[in-house]
Amino acid sequence: MAAGLKTVILLSFVLAVGFLLVILSCALWANWLPLLVALTFVLAPLPNSLFRNCATDDFGAADYAEGSGPIDLGHFMTACIVVTGFALPLVLAHSGVIHPMACVMSIVGGGLVYGTILSYTAVFRADPDEF
């Protein structure tokens, strides 16, 4: 269990660094629009987790190969939200609303936050399969 504990500590550290970068990118230039990036990346895993169980039939067997509309919708929306998270600061910086440095910082911070969420679900979803 020590490995799991270390993973949790490492992930929470990365998450904190990500949020620190996003909040710094807002606070240094007193322009709080980049905070939307953090919100976007936090919302990104939501469609997938909402629609995950839609592919299972009555016997609990996942049969995604046959094709499942809700699952596809979840994937589509996830990709849309992730691209939005990266595109939003770029667009804001392009039109001069936020400083270019704030754009870079919020993208890196948002990427760290989203990477944390992804790896957290990947690490802790694999655990029940082993037992």
Binding site: F76, A79, A87
Partner: peptide
């Protein structure tokens, strides 16, 4: 499906970029 979603969002943001730039 992921690639399609990413392309779709990229399309909308390309145009929104132009619109925000114009505004």
């Amino acid at each position: 499906v992921y690639a399609a979603g990413a392309l779709f969002a990229m399309a909308q943001w390309l145009f929104l970029d132009a619109a925000i730039l114009s505004a």
